[in-house]
Amino acid sequence: MTNIRQGFRTILLLLAMIALVLWLMDWLRAPKAPQGFEQQVFHTIDGRDLTIADLSARKTLLIYFWSRDCGVCHYTTSNMISMSDSGYNVLAIAQRSGNDIQIVRQLQGKHLTMPVVNDPAGAIAAQWQIDVMPTLLIVKKGKVVQSTTGWTSATGIKLRHWWVNKWY
């Protein structure tokens, strides 16, 4: 019985250490929100003009920075499209991913389920000092309250979203 308890304790300690390392990596790689970002007007590939303040006023917003050349983004993009289809509030920003037609092809025509902004030169990502793709920001009422970089599962994104809605 003590071996089982020790094994359980070891597993819990390992999980806590992994969580701490992941949190530290996110903290170190966290984007820096540019001043007045919530009022910046974004032009989507389907012709709409949006602001982060408007998008996040009533419902928590997930801002998803991705790139065509990012292998991990292929998996995360599918998750973000599914989440948008399920009612989550998602804004996708495609950094250095070609022209609007190339982005639509990359998304296999599913871009209409969520607003997509083309950032062909990476200027928006540079304003935020984003160096890692994909990067996910969670914005509530115009304020960035959480971010993560690199691969994140759909469950991980949903848990972060739930946490923000529960505690912020």
Rank of each mutant, 00 (worst) to 15 (best):
L136I: 15
W163V: 04
N89D: 06
I101Y: 12
K143H: 09
V117Q: 10
D131I: 13
M80K: 03
T148I: 05
A123E: 14
I130D: 06
G122P: 09
S67L: 04
A154P: 00
S84T: 01
C70L: 00
D119N: 10
V145I: 12
G98F: 05
S153F: 12
N118V: 01
V144D: 05
S153Y: 11
S97K: 03
A126Y: 02
W162G: 00
L136A: 03
R160V: 12
N99P: 02
R68Q: 13
R96H: 11
G109A: 09
M80I: 04
G156S: 09
I93F: 02
I93D: 02
I138L: 13
M80P: 02
A125H: 03
V116C: 01
G156P: 07
K158Q: 14
A94L: 06
K158W: 09
N79E: 14
Y75C: 00
Q95K: 07
A92H: 00
I157G: 06
K141Q: 10
Y88C: 01
G156I: 12
S78M: 14
A121P: 03
V72S: 02
H74F: 12
T77D: 08
D69C: 02
R68W: 09
V145A: 04
C70V: 02
K140S: 10
S86N: 14
N118C: 09
D131A: 15
N79V: 07
Q102W: 00
I81P: 05
Y75G: 04
G156M: 12
Q146M: 13
G98V: 12
W163T: 01
A125T: 01
Q95D: 06
S153G: 09
D131Y: 15
S67P: 04
I124R: 05
C73L: 11
G122V: 14
Q102D: 11
W162K: 14
L137A: 05
G156C: 12
D131L: 15
H111M: 10
T155W: 15
T113K: 12
S86W: 04
G150H: 04
R96T: 11
S147C: 07
S67Y: 04
L91M: 10
C73N: 05
T149P: 04
V139F: 05
V139E: 06
A94I: 09
L137D: 02
L91T: 05
K140A: 04
P120A: 08
I138G: 01
V104C: 08
A121I: 12
R68T: 08
P115T: 07
H111D: 13
K143W: 05
V104D: 11
I124C: 07
H74I: 14
D131R: 15
S82Q: 15
M114R: 02
I103Q: 01
R105C: 00
A92P: 01
A121L: 14
S147H: 12
C73Y: 01
W151T: 05
A92G: 12
S147K: 05
M114W: 02
N118R: 09
W151A: 09
T135Y: 06
G98Q: 09
G98P: 07
P120W: 09
I81L: 14
G122R: 11
T152G: 00
V117G: 11
V116M: 08
R96Q: 15
G150M: 07
H161N: 06
Q146S: 13
A94V: 06
S147Q: 10
M83S: 03
P115L: 10
I130S: 08
W151H: 11
D69W: 09
T113H: 13
S78G: 15
H111I: 02
N89F: 01
D100K: 13
C73S: 10
Q127I: 08
H161T: 08
Q108E: 13
